[in-house]
């Protein structure tokens, strides 16, 4: 099941550049939350803070609090946290040295599970959830790189699901894909929300409108507005949100 997140006074820096300025936000469990905003507004940094990936960059700094299911993530070991909070990246990044099967189970296997039977069960389950099983079940031993871009991205989703996270972060997961592959990812997001809390960064407002339950608009490192998607797109409260969604800037 998905878990809820609450973000309090989150600030982040990259070098001397402050990329997030005091974000307060509640993210409900088992919903799709879209993060929109122009390039450089901090939306990527925001999701990378949720699984503490931002800290891995040299020169980065974070302040504030993120509560996951009642517990602060900054009190936890970051490596363990990332098993609870999965992530899918902008460009598909399967491990080049591994087969499709090995890619899917990489997370569980490298975290210590060795039982072949279990791994096979997990692989099939994850690939089915990522709607990839039927396409690859006969070639699980091929390299992950042999798949098309859209398939690779679903493979990466399956790989993230295999470690059984409760939150799934997606950083513009379809921006490197063609329209048909994009559609399949969007369908998949709709199916996955019954099991996971999904936070998806997108620069594509139609995409947010299609798939998200709530939408948050970021600008210059600040959260301008967060509310039900239909409200954000039809009746924004803030002038800046309106300017952005009507295409006046960004």
């Amino acid at each position: 099941m998905g878990q809820s997140l609450s973000i309090r006074q989150l600030e982040a820096w990259y070098g001397t550049n402050q990329t997030l300025k005091g974000i307060n936000m509640e993210i409900a469990a088992n919903q799709v939350t879209a993060i929109i905003g122009p390039s450089g507004c901090g939306k990527s940094t925001f999701v990378r803070c949720i699984n503490r990936m931002h800290e891995t960059l040299p020169g980065s700094k974070v302040k504030g609090e993120i509560i996951l299911n009642g517990e602060s993530i900054y009190g936890q070991d970051p490596v363990s946290l990332r098993k609870t909070v999965g992530m899918v990246f902008q460009k598909p990044n399967p491990f080049p040295s591994m087969t499709i099967f090995e890619n899917v189970v990489a997370g569980v296997k490298l975290n210590g599970m060795r039982n072949r039977q279990n791994l096979q069960t997990i692989a099939e389950k994850s690939l089915r959830m990522a709607a990839l099983w039927d396409e690859v079940k006969d070639r699980l031993n091929y390299s992950g790189m042999s798949l098309s871009g859209g398939q690779q991205q679903r493979l990466c989703i399956a790989r993230a699901l295999a470690v059984e996270p409760s939150v799934l972060l997606m950083d513009e997961p379809a921006s490197a894909l063609d329209p048909i592959a994009t559609m399949r990812i969007e369908e998949l997001v709709g199916q996955l929300k019954s099991e996971y809390t999904i936070v998806i960064v997108t620069h594509n407002m139609q995409q947010a409108a299609r798939i998200a339950d709530t939408t948050a608009f970021f600008l210059n490192g600040e959260l301008v507005e967060h509310g039900p998607t239909s409200e954000i797109f039809t009746n924004p409260r803030d002038k800046r949100t309106e300017d952005y969604i009507t295409g006046r800037f960004g």
Binding site: N51, M53, T56, V79, S80, L81, R82, K83, T84, G86, M87, F89, K91, N93, P94, F95, P96, A106, G107, L110, N111, C156, R159, A160, V163
Partner: peptide, 15 residues
């Protein structure tokens, strides 16, 4: 590519 390492981190795999 750095993305390969990030993918690993994001899965909660130790460095």
């Amino acid at each position: 590519p750095h993305a390969i390492r990030e993918a690993g981190y994001a899965l909660g795999i130790s460095q």
